[in-house]
Computed example of a mutant assay.
Amino acid sequence: MKIINKMRNRILILSLLFFVTQILYSQDMKITYDMKYKEDSLSKETTTRKMLLLIHEGQSKFYTEKQYEVDSLRATGFKGFAVGDSDFYVIRNKKDITSKYYFKLRDVYKVTVSQALNWRIENQVEKKFGFACQKATLYHKGRHWEAWFTQEIPLLEGPYIFKGLPGLIVYMKDSTGSYEFSFAGLKKNFYPMDFENISPQPLEVSEDNLKKISLDYYNDPFREMKSGNVKAKVRDQKGNEIEPDFREMTKNVQSYLKKNNNPIELSDAIKYP
């Protein structure tokens, strides 16, 4: 009889958790993270960005707060010029394990990937950001991760592509200290917008094709300018228009790409020549 009662209680708790989760997913939610990371793995210098996780109609979207502000402005009908920040741009579906990555090179590219995350939930518990949290670990694409999730916010979500734990991930870092995500706030509702209303329209490519496109960009980043298809003025420090030195400009871009080649999915880092 005790075993039956325990089973009933467990089923009741799981049913309640499912019900609460469904209610939360039916609402628009905006979760803020502070992301600290190293663009160059060999440097001690770090960059910090304010990131947002938006939840809307069974989808979640992770990107910079700056890009969100630009998208919100455009959604109101604004037709002027506004500079966004399209790095770390991912859209995920709640019902499956599909992630859509967006990359900006010469054009905007979209890569759709299905991937399962093999979490290991540990026994360790701690208080973080005012929530009772439990530790989980993960190895994914070349990085070992430590995550802390709270069942006090029963969303199976987290920063970037990281989701699937029985509660919201409020803190996460990799073992090399290259990436760290820290919970910074949660609000219900945000300015309604189509998650995939991205300008310019992304070109859908495969992972292999994206690598080829990235290498092509590395080898000749100013191809469009040199061909005359893109009109752009090059100016010196005083603002005077000068004849572009494409060889020197290419060297600078290639040096930057080689140096700042420390992506979250480390095994997907482009092997530049």
Rank of each mutant, 00 (worst) to 15 (best):
W148V: 01
Y68I: 03
L105C: 04
Y179M: 04
Y68H: 12
A184K: 15
D40S: 08
K61Y: 11
L12V: 13
K271F: 05
T112A: 14
K6W: 08
K163E: 09
R92A: 14
S206Q: 02
T176V: 01
G142C: 02
Q22V: 11
S60Q: 02
D236L: 12
N118C: 06
D220Q: 05
R8D: 05
L203G: 04
L42H: 09
Y256L: 06
E146F: 04
E69S: 08
D268Y: 00
V90D: 06
D220S: 11
R106Q: 01
L186S: 11
P221F: 01
F131M: 03
R235T: 14
G228A: 03
G239K: 08
I153D: 01
R143S: 01
R49H: 13
F78Q: 07
G130M: 12
G185L: 00
L203H: 13
A184V: 08
P166W: 09
N93F: 02
K38F: 10
S182R: 12
M225P: 01
K188M: 13
W119N: 08
E243K: 15
L14C: 03
K163I: 07
Q151K: 15
F246A: 00
K128R: 15
F162V: 10
K127T: 15
F131P: 10
Y25I: 02
L257K: 05
L210W: 10
V205F: 02
Y68K: 03
I97P: 01
L73I: 10
Y89G: 00
L257P: 09
F18H: 05
E196C: 09
K211G: 08
T21A: 13
D85F: 10
S182Q: 12
F103S: 11
N93E: 13
F246G: 04
I97D: 15
L53Y: 00
G84E: 11
E122M: 13
V83C: 04
M172N: 05
F129Q: 14
E248N: 10
M35E: 10
E157M: 04
D28F: 10
F222S: 05
N209K: 15
Y63G: 03
C133R: 00
V70P: 05
V170M: 12
F78S: 08
I169F: 12
P244I: 11
E57K: 15
K110I: 01
A82D: 03
S72Y: 07
W145F: 15
N229V: 14
R106K: 11
E146R: 10
F62R: 01
N118Q: 04
L52Q: 03
T47H: 06
V253W: 07
D236G: 04
S86M: 14
H56D: 15
S175E: 15
F81Q: 03
P273G: 01
P221C: 06
V70T: 08
K66Y: 06
E65D: 12
D71V: 03
L12N: 13
L165K: 00
S99M: 07
L24D: 09
D107H: 14
T47S: 08
E57H: 13
V70I: 11
K44M: 12
T137L: 06
L42A: 14
T150Q: 12
V111H: 00
